[in-house]
Amino acid sequence: MNKVYAIGLDIGGTHITAAIIDIIDMKVLESSLYKESFDSNLPVDQVMDIWEKVIRISLKNSGVETVMGAAVCIPGPFDYEKGICWIKGQSKYEHFYGLSIRDLIKERFSFSDDFPIYFENDAVCFGKGEVYKDKNNLSKIVMAITIGTGLGACFIDKGISINSGSLVPKEGEIYDLPYKKGIAEDYVSARGLLSSYFHLSGTKVANGLELFNLATIGNELAIIAFEKMGEDLAQIVIPWLKNFSVNHFIIGGKIANASAYFLPSFEKKIKESGCEVSVLISTDNEIAALLGASSLLYTL
């Protein structure tokens, strides 16, 4: 079978990663993987200069001459069907509000009007990428989450993302589910961890990495903060694991790197609930996001 390639992009608030994807075998061409950090609040033309540079370097390094489309993993608020950015008041992409990212990319590369460029939410891309990395997962019912500055989620049934209906929460999101005195993301996120540690210790720490470093040197209250987050995560997802009949649960995001401190308490609560679900900690969120985005082109 002839190889078919596409551009995969993982775009965040402070970085862009590009790679060329073999969308027949759903593999990233390792030689093409290229990442650059930048300030997304720069003027549109300057941001697009950076994006263009990264994409062209990725294409050059891949040795691939022809791509049949592009797929973009990008956070919301975003009109994923129309390719329009609606991010505002989040200290990122302030100048992109209301602009068509699809048109901006096409203009930079003189792509034809019918050149396909697809967009998907970053948490959904992560979950779908984890599924497509191992095609055995295509037969499974999967819930995937990302824990970082926020709490992302997606629900996948046999490779298809489900974000509506009675089996999943509204829009497939869990970050805003009512929980304790606020919402889920108040407790399961970087800020949730820092808040928990402050209430336990009376001490403020700068970020999740600092708290992780405290845990690694045996700080008991730091460890307890992670354990409490694991318990909170379980309480939040258990109803949806049952409702969606999940048999495979995947955890990603930067805080997944601290799984040694929150996974035992999470799994204990899951077991006590009677849920029979396998749990996986992702080790390569970025590759998963690129594959997940490119899966939009998989059947074309």
Rank of each mutant, 00 (worst) to 15 (best):
Y34W: 05
I23T: 10
V28Y: 01
L29F: 09
D39S: 08
L29Q: 06
D22T: 11
D45N: 15
I57L: 07
L42V: 01
I23A: 06
I20C: 11
I16T: 14
Q46R: 13
K53E: 10
E36L: 13
S40C: 06
M48N: 11
V54G: 02
S31M: 02
M26A: 11
R56Q: 14
P43I: 10
S32D: 08
S40W: 11
K35I: 12
L33M: 12
V44D: 00
W51N: 00
S40H: 05
L42A: 07
M26S: 11
F38G: 02
A19D: 05
K53I: 01
V28F: 00
S32M: 12
I20T: 06
M26T: 05
M26Q: 14
S40R: 06
Q46E: 15
I23M: 08
E36N: 10
F38E: 04
V28T: 11
S31P: 05
D25R: 14
D22P: 10
E52K: 14
S40G: 11
M48W: 05
I16P: 04
A18L: 14
E30S: 12
S31T: 09
P43M: 09
V54R: 00
V47D: 06
W51K: 01
K53C: 05
Y34K: 08
L42E: 09
V28E: 06
A18Q: 02
Q46L: 10
E30H: 11
E52H: 11
I50S: 01
M26L: 13
K27S: 05
E52G: 13
I57N: 01
I55G: 00
I16S: 02
S32P: 13
A19E: 05
I16H: 05
V47I: 14
D22F: 08
I20A: 12
F38W: 07
N41T: 09
D45F: 04
I16F: 12
S31I: 00
V54D: 01
S37A: 08
L33C: 02
E36H: 12
L42R: 09
L29C: 08
N41I: 09
S37E: 14
M48K: 02
L29G: 00
T17I: 13
R56K: 15
W51T: 03
M48R: 04
K35L: 07
L29R: 05
E36K: 15
F38P: 01
H15E: 14
E30R: 09
I50W: 05
E30I: 04
S40K: 08
R56W: 02
I50H: 04
I55F: 09
T17A: 09
I55R: 04
V28W: 00
T17C: 13
L42N: 05
E52Y: 09
I57Q: 03
D45A: 10
S31E: 15
L33A: 03
I57S: 00
L42C: 00
